[in-house]
Design a protein around this nucleic acid. Structure first.
Lengths: 147, 147
DNA sequence: ACGCACTGGTTGCACGGACAACGAACGATT
DNA sequence: AATCGTTCGTTGTCCGTGCAACCAGTGCGT
């Protein structure tokens, strides 16, 4: 048994879990007009910026989400358009941008958080119960279950 | 400590590993004109279809890669354009399509396989060595290291 | 004070992927 | 044999993402 084969196997597993879970999150959040990345950003803002003055600068967020700077920029623009966050320019560094949740954003996050957690629990919640019951329904990815 | 928080943590970890590894594979294979998905398909064809008559039908592949049917169709078209695979229609079921590696495709796969394995070993090769040395350089994702 | 290298964020562009709609072919039913 | 429902694969279309290029702004050196 090659060491490479074991790695390959682990990699396939990661790929599988990632695809399935990601897709389920997307599906669960879609009715709210959110994607997985959107939630990731919202969640970051909630957990990171409860302090008043400590508004997140885009710069700080880039390292914490799995998105390029440009993608994050557009995503924030989208969220702002939907009234979930607000962009304010910061005085100390006038090329920086502060991003803060609006009341609506915070509310929506609170609303969908349980759903995301439920998906997480369902998809990677230690499937000691039934190793091949629901989640591992085939090694497949996302596209299997039509929306 | 919430159970949800533990799940969240696991999820972040998966997200992180996935993004980093995926990106590295892309980077490693890019010089050969391949992406991670392309390799996944090539690899599937190599490991799945060494038998002569047992050519893969697209249908069978869909479940094994993390791609939608349409994406797979286009991807195969791309690979065919590059001369790595060949599409032949099968006689028993005339709406089915057989996909087979060409000699060049097999060769290219053999050529890049070590690279992919190396990335895997580097990224998720049990980082017992240094938990926060290279891979976990920040919780960041892919976009951190410009191409 | 002036330039200079650099950082922070946005935009142009192209690409890959998902969903939906489509045409072709199969299988069953009548 | 003709029809209906279903499956297989491709194609139209939209959207999110990454890279590269771009301005605005900062801090340093001289």
């Amino acid at each position: 048994m090659t060491a490479g084969a074991r790695l390959e196997e682990r990699w396939r597993e990661i790929l599988s879990v990632h695809a399935r879970t990601m897709c389920e999150i997307d599906r669960a959040l879609h009715p709210y007009g959110l994607g997985a990345s959107d939630f990731e950003v919202l969640d970051l803002l909630v957990t990171e910026g409860p302090e008043e003055g400590a508004q997140c600068r885009v710069q700080n967020m880039v390292g914490r989400v799995h998105l390029s700077q440009s993608a994050l920029s557009r995503l924030i623009a989208r969220l702002e358009k939907d009234g979930l966050v607000e962009r304010t320019m910061c005085a100390e560094d006038r090329r920086g941008v502060y991003v803060a949740l609006t009341r609506g954003g915070r509310h929506l996050h609170a609303e969908v958080l349980p759903l995301q957690r439920a998906v997480l629990a369902r998809m990677l919640g230690d499937d000691e119960t039934a190793p091949d019951s629901a989640p591992p329904s085939g090694p497949a990815g996302c596209a299997r279950r039509p929306m």
